[in-house]
Amino acid sequence: MLKEIRPAIVSFLLLTLLTGITYPLLVTGVSQVTMPDKANGSMIIKDGKPIGSSLMGQSFSDPKYFWSRPSATSPMPNNPTSSGGSNLGPTNPALMDAVKGRVQALRDADPGNQQPVPVDLVTASGSGLDPHISPAAADYQLARVARVRNLSPDVVRKLVAEHTEGRQFGILGEPRVNVLELNLALDASH
């Protein structure tokens, strides 16, 4: 019964040192030396200060910006200290109301645009921090952004294209547009 206590205690301590201290420190050391930007959160730096992360979506509601995906984090949207989805079930009336409201908000911001709304633009992301929208969702908003900013749609289209990533290696994942980077580029362009 008691014969296994010493191996239990000593191996627990030694293996904790190995896997709980040495291993994370080793990974931190190597990543901080070789890939510091990524290991520290892919921050977007302006004048030496971080002004956001290219992996953290921000919330937009002004018609002059491309809007991100809805975020269900609390208390404010896109809150990285409280990540998560809405967890609303597919037949929950609250989900129908939320989607209806989002479709309406998009139509109000862009009267006359009666195209069907791409689904990712009116459904909350899993993390509540999704930095991307689909190219279809960018396309849906393009005319509005161009009109409010008094830009030609082609200029905006070019910026969208610059911030669109295809599938990785042409195969993996989905094509996507980085909303924060695109909006920062829009603000910087004029």
Partner: peptide, 16 residues
């Protein structure tokens, strides 16, 4: 070609 479509509630754009 420009969106994954489907039930996107609770899903991330990059994964579709």
């Amino acid at each position: 070609a420009t969106q994954s479509g489907g039930n996107m509630e609770g899903k991330e754009t990059r994964f579709g």
